[in-house]
Amino acid sequence: MIRLHHVQLACPAGGEEVARRFWRDGLGMTEVPKPPELAGRGGAWFRSGEAEIHVGVEEPFVPARKAHPALAVDDVATLETLGERLTAAGFEVDWRERHTFTGHQRFHAYDGHGNRVELVTGA
Rank of each mutant, 00 (worst) to 15 (best):
E50Q: 11
V76A: 06
A72C: 10
G26P: 04
E16A: 14
R116L: 13
A39C: 05
S48G: 12
E58P: 11
L119C: 00
L79K: 00
L119P: 02
G43E: 09
F107R: 07
N115H: 03
P63H: 05
H104E: 07
Q105H: 14
G43Y: 07
P33Y: 03
R24G: 06
G90R: 10
R20G: 06
E84R: 15
Q8P: 03
P36T: 11
G56K: 05
V73P: 00
G28I: 01
A10F: 14
Q8F: 03
A72G: 09
D94C: 10
D25G: 10
H113R: 06
P60Q: 05
L71Q: 00
V57K: 07
L71C: 02
E59T: 15
G56R: 08
G56M: 03
H54C: 00
E80V: 00
R116I: 04
G14V: 11
M29W: 05
Y110K: 14
R21V: 10
R47Q: 13
A51V: 15
F107P: 12
E92C: 09
K66P: 00
R20Y: 07
A13G: 10
R20C: 11
Q105A: 10
A64D: 14
H104G: 06
V32N: 06
Q8H: 12
W95H: 12
L79W: 02
W95Y: 14
H5Y: 11
E50M: 10
L27G: 04
A19Q: 05
P35W: 04
E92H: 12
A64G: 06
A13Y: 08
V73S: 00
G42M: 09
T100I: 07
I53D: 02
E31Q: 15
V73D: 00
R96Q: 11
G49E: 09
V120R: 06
P33D: 09
